[in-house]
């Protein structure tokens, strides 16, 4: 697959081609393509005049980066301490059961990707999950199904 890399150039231009913004440049690239395509990383290295090995190293160090293509909706289940104590495992298992994927995987139809994150910072509403950055608090198995179906229906429209 050939990707249009003009967006990468635009992003780098926004940061004046400064390699110290590498972490944020990669975030913006990921926002654009939904993951970090190999060729985009190559372009980043080339434009910033830094070794590709450094770009690859950074792209694999931080947990929010994904080198594999992801689903349209990113589900992040919070495994912060409060969520862990208040039923993180049920929530994660319910999602897995409902979508047939486990942590780090993407559904076959490329609609959902399931990630587990350290803490979303909404501990008072534990257990919490977020879909595409929107937080859902006080979750239980039933609410999980309701929320996921909401996003799934959205796809059909």
């Amino acid at each position: 697959m050939k990707l249009d890399l003009k967006s990468v150039d635009q992003i780098i231009g926004k940061y004046d081609g400064e390699d110290s913004w590498l972490v944020m440049i990669l975030q913006d690239v990921q926002d654009k393509y939904n993951y970090l395509p190999e060729c985009a990383l190559g372009r980043v290295a080339e434009s910033l005049k830094i070794p590709l090995s450094r770009v690859h190293s950074v792209a694999t160090f931080y947990s929010s980066f994904s080198l594999a293509e992801r689903g349209r909706h990113l589900i992040r289940v919070c495994d912060g301490t409060a969520c862990h104590l208040r039923g993180f495992t049920h929530i994660k298992e319910e999602i897995s059961r409902h979508l047939g994927i486990s942590e780090g995987q993407t559904t076959k139809d490329k609609v959902f990707t399931l990630d587990v994150v350290a803490c979303l910072g909404a501990c008072a509403l534990a257990p919490v999950m977020a879909v595409d950055g929107r937080c859902y608090g006080n979750m239980n198995a039933e609410k999980v199904r309701v929320v996921l179906d909401l996003y799934r229906r959205e796809k059909r429209h």
Binding site: L41, P51, L52, S53, V55, H56, S57, T60, F61
Partner: peptide, 18 residues
């Protein structure tokens, strides 16, 4: 700079890019 650390923690390793 042909090789670098990849991943972190217990998943850390040394490889060439990709």
């Amino acid at each position: 700079s042909a090789i670098s650390f990849v991943g972190r923690g217990r998943r850390r390793s040394v490889t060439t890019p990709f």
